[in-house]
Amino acid sequence: MKRLTALLLCLTLLCAVPLCAGATQEEEEEETLAFSIPAAIERLPDETLMGFFTDSVFVGDSISQRFRTYTKDRRVEEPGFLSNAKFLVTQSYLLFVASKNYVSKVSSNLTYQGQEMSLCMIMGKMKPKRVFILLGVNDYIGEKLDKAEEYVTRTVSLIHKYSPDTQIYFQSLTPVTRTFCKRKDYRTMWDQYNVLLKGLSETNDFTYIEIAQGLKDDEGYLPEALAMDKEYHLNNAGVEIWVSELLDFAQSQYEQGLWAPKV
């Protein structure tokens, strides 16, 4: 009897060992899962991110005209730079004029295929997938914040009317140099406009892209090392930062599931 009891006890002990080991293993696995970090979304290569700008148009004034020249020169060696994005730029173009559905008789207008046209009409003809707008400097829009909301919302509304499927992006105003601010603190005014623009993007059908921060020094000015004219026109180094900000934005759209590169 004693032998039988001892045998049964040994058998029981032998069976219990693997069960305990299994439980421990499960606990370990649970611990592992509890402390595991979700795999980070990979940063796409720049060449892939540039696909975000396929069938897009950049609209602006002389600041964007500089961007166009930079892009054209880059495309000599890199034909896929910013994909096939086009540019609609006029040196002294106003956000005020962009908000109209007719051409201005006093201010400069955009032209398309030899014709002066309003921005919304050109959008109706081009029907781009995306339009990236950077305007307001020539309006001194930081001094007219009360008008800024009207100009921006009307521009968005008109583009949607003429080209409903075009996604609209307003880029922040790029910063200005300390030299440019000698007469007035345009730096603060530009920043206030950018804050307003960002706020408007939350209640209107467009997306705000922050491109200014990477161009600012510690005091919020555009360093003269990034300016061609000691005022606000970016040199190539400045435009490179601008492009970098745009690629970061494209990456954020990918991470949020709002865009995927074509395979």
């Binding site: 040196q91 002294s92 400069s108 207008n109 032209t111 030899g114 002066e116």
Partner: peptide, 18 residues
């Protein structure tokens, strides 16, 4: 004609600005 039109547009664009 197109070139003349373009020239006139550029003048409008730059008269005050540049």
């Amino acid at each position: 004609e197109v070139f003349n039109h373009y020239h006139a547009q550029r003048e409008t664009e730059t008269r005050s600005y540049a």
